[in-house]
Design a protein around this nucleic acid. Structure first.
Lengths: 276, 276
DNA sequence: CGGGTATGTTCATTGAACGAACATCGCCGT
DNA sequence: ACGGCGATGTTCGTTCAATGAACATACCCG
Protein backbone atom coordinates (compact mmCIF):
# COMPACT_ATOMS: atom_id res chain seq x y z
CA UNK A 1 0.00 0.00 0.00
CA UNK A 2 2.17 2.87 -1.21
CA UNK A 3 -0.09 5.63 0.10
CA UNK A 4 -0.95 4.86 3.67
CA UNK A 5 -1.01 8.37 5.13
CA UNK A 6 -4.17 9.17 7.00
CA UNK A 7 -6.36 11.10 4.56
CA UNK A 8 -7.69 14.53 5.38
CA UNK A 9 -4.26 16.10 5.85
CA UNK A 10 -3.32 18.83 3.44
CA UNK A 11 0.12 19.44 1.98
CA UNK A 12 0.14 22.83 3.65
CA UNK A 13 -0.37 21.30 7.07
CA UNK A 14 2.54 18.94 6.53
CA UNK A 15 4.64 21.79 5.21
CA UNK A 16 4.07 23.82 8.35
CA UNK A 17 4.59 20.80 10.53
CA UNK A 18 8.10 20.78 9.13
CA UNK A 19 8.53 24.55 9.42
CA UNK A 20 7.28 24.78 12.99
CA UNK A 21 9.49 21.92 14.05
CA UNK A 22 12.00 24.75 14.43
CA UNK A 23 11.42 26.15 17.89
CA UNK A 24 13.28 28.25 20.41
CA UNK A 25 16.40 26.36 21.35
CA UNK A 26 15.92 24.02 18.40
CA UNK A 27 16.53 26.55 15.69
CA UNK A 28 18.90 24.35 13.75
CA UNK A 29 17.74 20.86 12.84
CA UNK A 30 19.09 18.13 10.62
CA UNK A 31 16.92 16.09 8.30
CA UNK A 32 16.82 13.30 10.87
CA UNK A 33 15.76 15.79 13.55
CA UNK A 34 12.92 17.04 11.39
CA UNK A 35 11.84 13.47 10.70
CA UNK A 36 11.79 12.62 14.40
CA UNK A 37 10.10 15.89 15.29
CA UNK A 38 7.28 15.58 12.78
CA UNK A 39 6.83 11.82 12.76
CA UNK A 40 6.47 11.90 8.98
CA UNK A 41 8.31 9.50 6.67
CA UNK A 42 11.80 10.78 5.97
CA UNK A 43 11.32 10.84 2.23
CA UNK A 44 8.37 13.18 2.66
CA UNK A 45 10.19 15.39 5.10
CA UNK A 46 13.15 15.61 2.79
CA UNK A 47 11.04 16.62 -0.19
CA UNK A 48 9.17 19.25 1.82
CA UNK A 49 12.30 20.63 3.46
CA UNK A 50 14.04 20.99 0.10
CA UNK A 51 11.01 22.78 -1.29
CA UNK A 52 11.13 25.12 1.68
CA UNK A 53 14.79 25.80 0.96
CA UNK A 54 14.03 26.49 -2.67
CA UNK A 55 11.34 28.95 -1.66
CA UNK A 56 13.78 30.68 0.67
CA UNK A 57 11.81 29.83 3.79
CA UNK A 58 14.63 27.67 5.10
CA UNK A 59 18.37 27.84 4.65
CA UNK A 60 20.55 24.79 4.53
CA UNK A 61 24.13 24.93 5.66
CA UNK A 62 26.70 22.87 3.80
CA UNK A 63 26.81 20.47 6.74
CA UNK A 64 23.13 19.62 6.28
CA UNK A 65 21.54 21.67 9.04
CA UNK A 66 18.27 23.47 8.34
CA UNK A 67 17.68 26.94 9.75
CA UNK A 68 15.11 29.66 9.23
CA UNK A 69 15.85 31.57 6.03
CA UNK A 70 16.41 35.27 5.71
CA UNK A 71 13.37 35.70 3.50
CA UNK A 72 11.17 34.21 6.18
CA UNK A 73 12.70 36.56 8.72
CA UNK A 74 11.99 39.46 6.37
CA UNK A 75 8.41 38.29 6.05
CA UNK A 76 8.16 38.17 9.83
CA UNK A 77 9.18 41.80 10.13
CA UNK A 78 5.97 42.67 8.27
CA UNK A 79 3.84 41.35 11.13
CA UNK A 80 1.45 43.99 12.46
CA UNK A 81 3.03 43.84 15.90
CA UNK A 82 6.10 45.61 14.56
CA UNK A 83 4.07 48.60 13.65
CA UNK A 84 2.45 50.28 15.41
CA UNK A 85 2.84 48.45 18.72
CA UNK A 86 6.60 48.00 18.94
CA UNK A 87 7.41 51.29 17.30
CA UNK A 88 5.13 53.17 19.63
CA UNK A 89 6.11 51.32 22.78
CA UNK A 90 9.88 51.30 22.35
CA UNK A 91 10.62 54.93 23.27
CA UNK A 92 8.54 54.62 26.44
CA UNK A 93 10.18 51.34 27.28
CA UNK A 94 13.49 53.10 26.83
CA UNK A 95 12.46 55.72 29.36
CA UNK A 96 11.32 53.06 31.79
CA UNK A 97 14.59 51.27 31.30
CA UNK A 98 16.56 54.46 31.86
CA UNK A 99 14.62 55.28 35.01
CA UNK A 100 14.81 51.87 36.65
CA UNK A 101 17.81 50.15 35.10
CA UNK A 102 15.94 46.87 35.06
CA UNK A 103 14.59 44.48 32.44
CA UNK A 104 11.60 45.86 30.58
CA UNK A 105 9.39 43.50 28.60
CA UNK A 106 6.53 43.84 26.16
CA UNK A 107 4.37 40.82 25.39
CA UNK A 108 1.19 39.97 23.53
CA UNK A 109 -1.28 37.11 23.70
CA UNK A 110 -0.94 34.32 21.18
CA UNK A 111 -2.96 31.16 21.65
CA UNK A 112 -2.29 29.85 25.15
CA UNK A 113 0.99 31.68 25.70
CA UNK A 114 2.34 35.16 26.07
CA UNK A 115 4.79 35.98 23.30
CA UNK A 116 7.68 38.29 24.12
CA UNK A 117 7.68 41.04 21.52
CA UNK A 118 10.31 43.43 22.77
CA UNK A 119 12.81 43.44 25.54
CA UNK A 120 15.33 45.83 27.01
CA UNK A 121 17.81 44.30 29.41
CA UNK A 122 20.41 45.70 31.71
CA UNK A 123 23.70 43.92 31.90
CA UNK A 124 23.78 43.94 35.68
CA UNK A 125 20.18 42.87 36.23
CA UNK A 126 19.00 39.31 36.76
CA UNK A 127 19.29 37.15 33.76
CA UNK A 128 16.07 35.91 32.27
CA UNK A 129 16.20 33.30 29.59
CA UNK A 130 13.49 34.69 27.35
CA UNK A 131 14.27 36.51 24.13
CA UNK A 132 12.04 38.37 21.69
CA UNK A 133 9.98 35.72 19.94
CA UNK A 134 10.04 33.51 23.01
CA UNK A 135 7.03 32.32 24.95
CA UNK A 136 6.03 32.88 28.56
CA UNK A 137 3.37 30.96 30.49
CA UNK A 138 0.09 32.77 31.05
CA UNK A 139 -0.40 31.61 34.63
CA UNK A 140 3.02 32.21 36.09
CA UNK A 141 4.48 35.30 34.45
CA UNK A 142 3.60 38.93 35.04
CA UNK A 143 2.74 39.72 31.45
CA UNK A 144 0.94 36.38 31.17
CA UNK A 145 -1.37 37.15 34.10
CA UNK A 146 -2.21 40.57 32.74
CA UNK A 147 -3.04 39.16 29.30
CA UNK A 148 -4.99 36.22 30.72
CA UNK A 149 -6.97 38.48 33.03
CA UNK A 150 -8.23 40.54 30.12
CA UNK A 151 -8.73 37.75 27.60
CA UNK A 152 -11.93 35.82 26.94
CA UNK A 153 -13.01 34.11 30.19
CA UNK A 154 -12.93 30.63 28.67
CA UNK A 155 -9.20 30.99 28.05
CA UNK A 156 -8.73 30.89 31.82
CA UNK A 157 -10.77 27.69 31.94
CA UNK A 158 -8.60 26.25 29.19
CA UNK A 159 -5.40 27.18 30.96
CA UNK A 160 -6.62 25.71 34.25
CA UNK A 161 -7.85 22.56 32.52
CA UNK A 162 -4.46 22.16 30.86
CA UNK A 163 -2.88 22.16 34.33
CA UNK A 164 -1.07 24.95 36.14
CA UNK A 165 2.47 23.70 35.74
CA UNK A 166 4.53 24.81 38.74
CA UNK A 167 7.85 26.26 37.63
CA UNK A 168 8.95 26.96 41.21
CA UNK A 169 7.41 26.31 44.62
CA UNK A 170 5.87 29.77 44.45
CA UNK A 171 3.90 29.21 41.27
CA UNK A 172 0.16 29.61 41.73
CA UNK A 173 -1.24 26.13 41.13
CA UNK A 174 -4.57 26.57 42.89
CA UNK A 175 -7.29 27.48 40.31
CA UNK A 176 -9.34 29.51 42.80
CA UNK A 177 -6.30 31.48 43.82
CA UNK A 178 -5.38 32.17 40.20
CA UNK A 179 -8.91 33.34 39.44
CA UNK A 180 -8.73 35.70 42.41
CA UNK A 181 -5.41 37.09 41.18
CA UNK A 182 -6.89 37.63 37.73
CA UNK A 183 -9.95 39.39 39.16
CA UNK A 184 -7.66 41.61 41.20
CA UNK A 185 -5.65 42.35 38.07
CA UNK A 186 -8.77 43.27 36.13
CA UNK A 187 -9.59 45.67 38.94
CA UNK A 188 -6.18 47.27 39.35
CA UNK A 189 -4.65 46.70 35.94
CA UNK A 190 -1.50 45.35 37.56
CA UNK A 191 -0.13 41.89 38.22
CA UNK A 192 2.71 40.86 40.50
CA UNK A 193 4.88 37.81 40.31
CA UNK A 194 7.21 36.70 43.10
CA UNK A 195 9.52 33.99 41.93
CA UNK A 196 6.78 32.11 40.14
CA UNK A 197 8.60 31.74 36.84
CA UNK A 198 12.03 31.28 38.34
CA UNK A 199 13.30 31.72 41.87
CA UNK A 200 14.57 35.12 42.89
CA UNK A 201 12.88 36.89 40.01
CA UNK A 202 10.01 39.27 40.65
CA UNK A 203 8.03 41.30 38.19
CA UNK A 204 5.35 43.95 37.96
CA UNK A 205 3.19 43.99 34.87
CA UNK A 206 0.49 46.25 33.52
CA UNK A 207 -1.74 46.36 30.50
CA UNK A 208 -1.48 48.33 27.26
CA UNK A 209 -4.73 49.47 25.68
CA UNK A 210 -5.54 50.57 22.15
CA UNK A 211 -7.92 53.29 21.00
CA UNK A 212 -10.88 50.91 21.45
CA UNK A 213 -9.91 50.23 25.06
CA UNK A 214 -8.92 46.65 24.29
CA UNK A 215 -5.90 45.13 25.99
CA UNK A 216 -3.45 44.58 23.16
CA UNK A 217 -0.27 43.94 25.12
CA UNK A 218 1.31 43.73 28.54
CA UNK A 219 4.28 45.66 29.82
CA UNK A 220 6.44 44.48 32.68
CA UNK A 221 9.53 45.25 34.69
CA UNK A 222 11.52 42.28 35.88
CA UNK A 223 13.78 42.66 38.90
CA UNK A 224 15.96 40.54 41.09
CA UNK A 225 14.03 39.76 44.28
CA UNK A 226 14.89 42.04 47.18
CA UNK A 227 16.97 44.53 45.23
CA UNK A 228 14.11 46.86 44.46
CA UNK A 229 10.97 47.78 46.33
CA UNK A 230 8.14 46.75 44.03
CA UNK A 231 6.00 49.54 45.49
CA UNK A 232 8.43 51.96 43.90
CA UNK A 233 8.32 50.20 40.59
CA UNK A 234 4.54 49.88 40.45
CA UNK A 235 3.54 53.49 39.71
CA UNK A 236 6.37 53.84 37.22
CA UNK A 237 5.22 50.79 35.32
CA UNK A 238 1.60 51.92 35.41
CA UNK A 239 2.49 55.38 34.13
CA UNK A 240 4.52 53.89 31.32
CA UNK A 241 1.69 51.54 30.36
CA UNK A 242 -0.69 54.49 30.28
CA UNK A 243 1.74 56.49 28.18
CA UNK A 244 1.99 53.73 25.59
CA UNK A 245 -1.78 53.30 25.62
CA UNK A 246 -2.24 57.02 25.06
CA UNK A 247 0.10 56.93 22.09
CA UNK A 248 -2.00 54.13 20.67
CA UNK A 249 -5.00 56.44 20.79
CA UNK A 250 -6.50 55.36 24.10
CA UNK A 251 -8.13 58.02 26.28
CA UNK A 252 -9.29 57.52 29.88
CA UNK A 253 -12.80 58.57 28.94
CA UNK A 254 -12.99 56.40 25.85
CA UNK A 255 -11.64 53.45 27.77
CA UNK A 256 -14.51 52.94 30.21
CA UNK A 257 -15.30 49.58 28.67
CA UNK A 258 -12.37 47.73 30.15
CA UNK A 259 -10.08 50.35 31.50
CA UNK A 260 -12.28 52.24 33.90
CA UNK A 261 -10.78 51.04 37.17
CA UNK A 262 -7.25 51.74 36.03
CA UNK A 263 -7.59 55.33 37.16
CA UNK A 264 -7.86 54.19 40.75
CA UNK A 265 -5.04 51.74 40.32
CA UNK A 266 -2.76 54.48 39.12
CA UNK A 267 -2.56 56.00 42.57
CA UNK A 268 -0.23 54.01 44.79
CA UNK A 269 -2.36 54.72 47.85
CA UNK A 270 -5.94 53.40 48.16
CA UNK A 271 -5.35 49.75 49.04
CA UNK A 272 -1.69 49.02 48.63
CA UNK A 273 -1.68 45.24 48.71
CA UNK A 274 2.04 45.41 48.86
CA UNK A 275 4.41 42.57 48.34
CA UNK A 276 6.21 42.04 51.57
CA UNK B 1 -10.60 21.38 -18.90
CA UNK B 2 -10.88 21.70 -15.14
CA UNK B 3 -7.14 21.47 -14.50
CA UNK B 4 -5.39 23.80 -16.84
CA UNK B 5 -2.54 24.98 -14.62
CA UNK B 6 0.86 24.58 -16.16
CA UNK B 7 2.21 21.32 -14.74
CA UNK B 8 5.47 21.19 -12.89
CA UNK B 9 4.45 23.68 -10.22
CA UNK B 10 4.32 22.36 -6.70
CA UNK B 11 1.79 23.26 -4.03
CA UNK B 12 4.58 24.65 -1.93
CA UNK B 13 5.63 27.07 -4.64
CA UNK B 14 2.06 28.34 -4.97
CA UNK B 15 1.78 28.59 -1.19
CA UNK B 16 4.85 30.78 -0.98
CA UNK B 17 3.74 32.81 -3.94
CA UNK B 18 0.79 33.80 -1.79
CA UNK B 19 2.92 34.32 1.32
CA UNK B 20 5.56 36.43 -0.37
CA UNK B 21 2.92 38.58 -2.00
CA UNK B 22 3.18 40.41 1.33
CA UNK B 23 6.03 42.85 0.91
CA UNK B 24 7.29 46.00 2.55
CA UNK B 25 4.58 48.60 2.20
CA UNK B 26 2.10 45.92 1.16
CA UNK B 27 1.92 44.14 4.46
CA UNK B 28 -1.85 43.96 4.52
CA UNK B 29 -3.63 42.51 1.51
CA UNK B 30 -7.18 41.50 0.76
CA UNK B 31 -8.09 38.32 -1.05
CA UNK B 32 -8.50 40.29 -4.27
CA UNK B 33 -5.06 41.84 -3.76
CA UNK B 34 -3.48 38.42 -3.33
CA UNK B 35 -5.25 37.20 -6.44
CA UNK B 36 -3.98 40.15 -8.49
CA UNK B 37 -0.51 39.88 -7.00
CA UNK B 38 -0.05 36.18 -7.67
CA UNK B 39 -2.03 35.86 -10.88
CA UNK B 40 -3.51 32.61 -9.62
CA UNK B 41 -7.24 31.81 -9.83
CA UNK B 42 -9.06 33.33 -6.90
CA UNK B 43 -10.49 30.02 -5.73
CA UNK B 44 -6.96 28.66 -5.42
CA UNK B 45 -5.67 31.74 -3.65
CA UNK B 46 -8.56 31.63 -1.24
CA UNK B 47 -7.98 27.99 -0.35
CA UNK B 48 -4.24 28.54 0.15
CA UNK B 49 -4.69 31.73 2.15
CA UNK B 50 -7.18 30.08 4.47
CA UNK B 51 -4.81 27.18 4.98
CA UNK B 52 -2.09 29.67 5.83
CA UNK B 53 -4.39 31.28 8.37
CA UNK B 54 -5.21 27.91 9.89
CA UNK B 55 -1.53 27.14 10.21
CA UNK B 56 -0.94 30.48 11.92
CA UNK B 57 1.29 31.81 9.16
CA UNK B 58 -1.21 34.52 8.31
CA UNK B 59 -3.73 36.41 10.39
CA UNK B 60 -7.03 37.56 9.01
CA UNK B 61 -8.73 40.61 10.43
CA UNK B 62 -12.50 40.62 10.69
CA UNK B 63 -12.63 43.02 7.73
CA UNK B 64 -10.97 40.45 5.49
CA UNK B 65 -7.39 41.74 5.35
CA UNK B 66 -4.54 39.25 5.50
CA UNK B 67 -1.40 40.07 7.48
CA UNK B 68 1.65 38.14 8.62
CA UNK B 69 0.78 36.04 11.66
CA UNK B 70 2.50 36.15 15.01
CA UNK B 71 3.65 32.56 14.71
CA UNK B 72 5.45 33.38 11.49
CA UNK B 73 7.09 36.35 13.18
CA UNK B 74 8.17 34.06 16.01
CA UNK B 75 9.61 31.67 13.48
CA UNK B 76 11.50 34.53 11.89
CA UNK B 77 13.18 35.41 15.18
CA UNK B 78 14.88 32.00 15.03
CA UNK B 79 16.81 32.99 11.91
CA UNK B 80 20.56 32.64 12.40
CA UNK B 81 21.10 36.34 11.79
CA UNK B 82 19.58 37.09 15.17
CA UNK B 83 22.25 35.12 16.91
CA UNK B 84 25.13 35.51 16.79
CA UNK B 85 25.38 38.37 14.29
CA UNK B 86 22.84 40.84 15.65
CA UNK B 87 23.52 40.02 19.27
CA UNK B 88 27.23 40.47 18.80
CA UNK B 89 27.02 43.56 16.64
CA UNK B 90 24.43 45.51 18.59
CA UNK B 91 26.61 46.69 21.50
CA UNK B 92 29.28 47.92 19.10
CA UNK B 93 26.67 49.61 16.96
CA UNK B 94 25.43 51.28 20.12
CA UNK B 95 28.90 52.63 20.77
CA UNK B 96 29.20 53.88 17.21
CA UNK B 97 25.82 55.48 17.53
CA UNK B 98 26.76 57.11 20.82
CA UNK B 99 30.04 58.41 19.37
CA UNK B 100 28.66 59.84 16.14
CA UNK B 101 24.96 60.44 16.80
CA UNK B 102 24.14 59.29 13.29
CA UNK B 103 22.25 56.40 11.73
CA UNK B 104 24.06 53.09 12.07
CA UNK B 105 23.05 50.20 9.84
CA UNK B 106 23.88 46.52 9.63
CA UNK B 107 23.02 44.59 6.47
CA UNK B 108 23.61 41.20 4.93
CA UNK B 109 23.52 39.85 1.41
CA UNK B 110 20.39 38.06 0.29
CA UNK B 111 19.98 37.23 -3.37
CA UNK B 112 20.47 40.40 -5.37
CA UNK B 113 19.79 42.82 -2.54
CA UNK B 114 21.21 43.93 0.75
CA UNK B 115 18.82 43.23 3.60
CA UNK B 116 18.80 45.64 6.52
CA UNK B 117 19.19 43.56 9.65
CA UNK B 118 19.59 46.14 12.38
CA UNK B 119 19.37 49.86 12.56
CA UNK B 120 19.96 52.56 15.13
CA UNK B 121 18.63 55.98 14.24
CA UNK B 122 18.97 59.38 15.77
CA UNK B 123 15.93 61.56 15.84
CA UNK B 124 17.75 64.59 14.52
CA UNK B 125 19.63 62.82 11.74
CA UNK B 126 18.49 62.55 8.14
CA UNK B 127 15.51 60.36 7.65
CA UNK B 128 16.06 57.22 5.67
CA UNK B 129 13.08 55.19 4.67
CA UNK B 130 14.53 51.75 5.28
CA UNK B 131 13.54 49.64 8.27
CA UNK B 132 14.90 46.34 9.57
CA UNK B 133 13.75 43.70 7.11
CA UNK B 134 13.88 46.19 4.27
CA UNK B 135 16.01 45.92 1.14
CA UNK B 136 18.72 48.16 -0.19
CA UNK B 137 20.17 48.07 -3.72
CA UNK B 138 23.60 46.51 -4.07
CA UNK B 139 24.95 49.05 -6.54
CA UNK B 140 23.87 52.30 -4.93
CA UNK B 141 24.03 51.88 -1.18
CA UNK B 142 27.07 51.78 1.06
CA UNK B 143 26.35 48.41 2.59
CA UNK B 144 25.33 47.12 -0.82
CA UNK B 145 28.65 48.02 -2.41
CA UNK B 146 30.60 46.40 0.41
CA UNK B 147 28.59 43.19 0.15
CA UNK B 148 28.73 43.13 -3.64
CA UNK B 149 32.46 43.74 -3.65
CA UNK B 150 33.09 40.65 -1.56
CA UNK B 151 30.48 38.37 -3.10
CA UNK B 152 31.02 35.90 -5.93
CA UNK B 153 32.25 37.83 -9.01
CA UNK B 154 29.35 36.69 -11.18
CA UNK B 155 26.92 38.47 -8.88
CA UNK B 156 28.40 41.74 -10.10
CA UNK B 157 27.79 40.60 -13.68
CA UNK B 158 24.20 39.77 -12.77
CA UNK B 159 23.63 43.12 -11.13
CA UNK B 160 25.10 44.97 -14.09
CA UNK B 161 23.12 42.87 -16.55
CA UNK B 162 19.94 43.64 -14.64
CA UNK B 163 20.63 47.32 -15.14
CA UNK B 164 22.07 49.87 -12.72
CA UNK B 165 18.89 51.71 -11.85
CA UNK B 166 19.74 55.35 -11.09
CA UNK B 167 18.00 56.49 -7.91
CA UNK B 168 19.48 59.99 -8.15
CA UNK B 169 21.69 61.76 -10.65
CA UNK B 170 24.69 60.67 -8.59
CA UNK B 171 24.04 56.95 -8.81
CA UNK B 172 26.85 55.03 -10.46
CA UNK B 173 25.33 53.71 -13.66
CA UNK B 174 28.54 53.06 -15.58
CA UNK B 175 29.54 49.35 -15.22
CA UNK B 176 33.26 50.09 -15.52
CA UNK B 177 33.05 52.73 -12.88
CA UNK B 178 31.12 50.42 -10.53
CA UNK B 179 33.69 47.66 -11.03
CA UNK B 180 36.44 50.13 -10.16
CA UNK B 181 34.62 51.15 -7.00
CA UNK B 182 34.19 47.53 -6.01
CA UNK B 183 37.87 46.78 -6.62
CA UNK B 184 38.77 49.79 -4.50
CA UNK B 185 36.43 48.54 -1.79
CA UNK B 186 38.02 45.08 -1.85
CA UNK B 187 41.34 46.78 -1.37
CA UNK B 188 40.39 49.19 1.41
CA UNK B 189 37.40 47.43 2.94
CA UNK B 190 35.42 50.63 2.78
CA UNK B 191 32.77 52.01 0.45
CA UNK B 192 31.50 55.56 0.17
CA UNK B 193 28.17 56.74 -1.15
CA UNK B 194 27.41 60.38 -1.91
CA UNK B 195 23.74 60.88 -2.54
CA UNK B 196 23.43 57.80 -4.72
CA UNK B 197 20.46 56.30 -2.92
CA UNK B 198 18.76 59.60 -2.17
CA UNK B 199 19.95 63.15 -2.52
CA UNK B 200 21.72 64.71 0.42
CA UNK B 201 22.43 61.40 2.08
CA UNK B 202 25.99 60.13 2.37
CA UNK B 203 27.26 56.97 3.93
CA UNK B 204 30.44 55.14 4.82
CA UNK B 205 30.30 51.36 4.96
CA UNK B 206 32.73 48.64 5.94
CA UNK B 207 32.72 44.88 6.09
CA UNK B 208 32.17 42.47 8.96
CA UNK B 209 34.12 39.23 8.87
CA UNK B 210 33.56 35.95 10.66
CA UNK B 211 36.16 33.56 12.10
CA UNK B 212 36.79 32.13 8.62
CA UNK B 213 37.53 35.56 7.20
CA UNK B 214 34.35 35.58 5.12
CA UNK B 215 32.38 38.80 4.74
CA UNK B 216 29.12 38.06 6.53
CA UNK B 217 27.71 41.56 6.83
CA UNK B 218 28.26 45.22 6.16
CA UNK B 219 28.17 48.04 8.65
CA UNK B 220 27.49 51.62 7.71
CA UNK B 221 27.00 55.08 9.07
CA UNK B 222 24.53 57.27 7.22
CA UNK B 223 24.83 61.03 7.50
CA UNK B 224 23.25 64.11 6.08
CA UNK B 225 25.54 65.44 3.34
CA UNK B 226 27.77 68.25 4.50
CA UNK B 227 27.05 67.97 8.21
CA UNK B 228 29.89 65.60 8.96
CA UNK B 229 33.31 65.16 7.46
CA UNK B 230 33.32 61.63 6.13
CA UNK B 231 37.07 61.45 6.73
CA UNK B 232 36.29 61.68 10.43
CA UNK B 233 33.67 59.00 10.24
CA UNK B 234 35.77 56.58 8.23
CA UNK B 235 38.24 55.38 10.90
CA UNK B 236 35.44 55.12 13.45
CA UNK B 237 33.38 52.92 11.17
CA UNK B 238 36.38 50.78 10.31
CA UNK B 239 37.29 50.29 13.94
CA UNK B 240 33.74 49.32 14.77
CA UNK B 241 33.63 46.83 11.90
CA UNK B 242 36.86 45.31 13.11
CA UNK B 243 35.54 45.13 16.66
CA UNK B 244 32.44 43.25 15.53
CA UNK B 245 34.58 40.97 13.37
CA UNK B 246 36.83 40.21 16.31
CA UNK B 247 33.85 39.32 18.46
CA UNK B 248 32.78 36.91 15.75
CA UNK B 249 36.11 35.15 16.10
CA UNK B 250 38.01 36.85 13.29
CA UNK B 251 41.70 37.55 13.79
CA UNK B 252 43.90 39.63 11.49
CA UNK B 253 46.24 36.67 10.98
CA UNK B 254 43.50 34.16 10.34
CA UNK B 255 41.79 36.50 7.93
CA UNK B 256 44.43 36.52 5.22
CA UNK B 257 42.12 34.76 2.78
CA UNK B 258 39.86 37.67 2.08
CA UNK B 259 40.70 40.15 4.72
CA UNK B 260 44.35 40.67 4.17
CA UNK B 261 44.19 44.19 2.74
CA UNK B 262 41.96 45.35 5.56
CA UNK B 263 44.97 45.78 7.79
CA UNK B 264 46.19 48.62 5.62
CA UNK B 265 42.76 50.11 5.46
CA UNK B 266 42.44 50.07 9.21
CA UNK B 267 45.11 52.63 9.80
CA UNK B 268 44.42 56.10 8.47
CA UNK B 269 48.13 56.27 7.78
CA UNK B 270 49.35 53.68 5.30
CA UNK B 271 50.26 50.74 7.50
CA UNK B 272 49.85 51.31 11.20
CA UNK B 273 47.31 48.53 11.67
CA UNK B 274 46.36 49.98 14.97
CA UNK B 275 44.48 48.07 17.59
CA UNK B 276 45.83 50.17 20.40
C1' DC C 1 33.33 -6.56 9.19
C1' DG C 2 28.55 -6.22 10.88
C1' DG C 3 25.13 -3.09 12.99
C1' DG C 4 23.47 1.53 13.41
C1' DT C 5 22.32 6.01 11.82
C1' DA C 6 21.91 9.81 8.45
C1' DT C 7 21.06 10.95 3.92
C1' DG C 8 19.69 10.31 -0.85
C1' DT C 9 16.83 7.99 -4.77
C1' DT C 10 13.11 5.39 -7.11
C1' DC C 11 8.39 4.59 -8.65
C1' DA C 12 3.56 2.73 -8.76
C1' DT C 13 -0.55 4.33 -6.61
C1' DT C 14 -4.15 7.58 -5.50
C1' DG C 15 -6.37 11.26 -3.09
C1' DA C 16 -5.66 16.04 -2.57
C1' DA C 17 -5.22 20.11 -5.20
C1' DC C 18 -7.07 22.40 -8.89
C1' DG C 19 -9.99 25.95 -11.23
C1' DA C 20 -14.05 26.84 -14.29
C1' DA C 21 -18.50 27.74 -13.30
C1' DC C 22 -21.92 29.23 -10.34
C1' DA C 23 -23.83 31.89 -6.23
C1' DT C 24 -24.09 35.80 -3.10
C1' DC C 25 -23.46 40.25 -1.21
C1' DG C 26 -22.69 45.16 -1.16
C1' DC C 27 -21.91 49.31 -3.69
C1' DC C 28 -22.53 52.89 -7.00
C1' DG C 29 -24.57 55.33 -10.70
C1' DT C 30 -28.83 55.96 -13.19
C1' DA D 1 -35.84 49.78 -8.61
C1' DC D 2 -32.52 48.05 -11.59
C1' DG D 3 -28.25 46.52 -13.68
C1' DG D 4 -23.37 46.48 -13.78
C1' DC D 5 -19.30 45.64 -11.14
C1' DG D 6 -16.00 43.92 -7.96
C1' DA D 7 -15.12 41.18 -3.94
C1' DT D 8 -15.96 37.10 -1.61
C1' DG D 9 -17.64 32.48 -1.03
C1' DT D 10 -19.00 27.58 -2.78
C1' DT D 11 -19.33 23.44 -5.72
C1' DC D 12 -17.51 19.39 -8.04
C1' DG D 13 -15.56 16.41 -11.79
C1' DT D 14 -10.90 15.82 -13.45
C1' DT D 15 -6.13 14.71 -12.97
C1' DC D 16 -1.46 15.22 -11.74
C1' DA D 17 1.53 16.07 -8.05
C1' DA D 18 2.29 14.24 -3.54
C1' DT D 19 3.15 10.23 -1.20
C1' DG D 20 5.99 6.65 1.34
C1' DA D 21 7.64 1.82 1.21
C1' DA D 22 11.56 -0.05 -0.51
C1' DC D 23 16.05 0.29 -2.05
C1' DA D 24 20.80 2.47 -2.19
C1' DT D 25 24.84 4.79 -0.36
C1' DA D 26 27.96 6.70 2.94
C1' DC D 27 29.87 7.15 7.34
C1' DC D 28 30.94 6.09 12.11
C1' DC D 29 31.91 2.99 15.86
C1' DG D 30 33.11 -1.26 18.33
Amino acid sequence: MPHSNQPGRSVASRLFEVLFALRTGRSRLTLADLTRETGLPHATVRRLALELVEAGALDRSPDGGFTVGIRLWQLGTLAPLSVPLRTVALPFMDDLHAALRQHVQLAILEGTSAVLVERLSSGHAVDVASQPGGQLPLHSSGVGKVLLAHAAPDLTDQIIAAGLTPHTQHTTTEPTWLRAELAECRETGVAYVHGETSLGVDSVATRVLNAEGEVVAALSVVVSAGTVDLRTVRPTVIACGLAVSRSLGWRPSAGTRQAGPLARAAGPSSRSRSSD
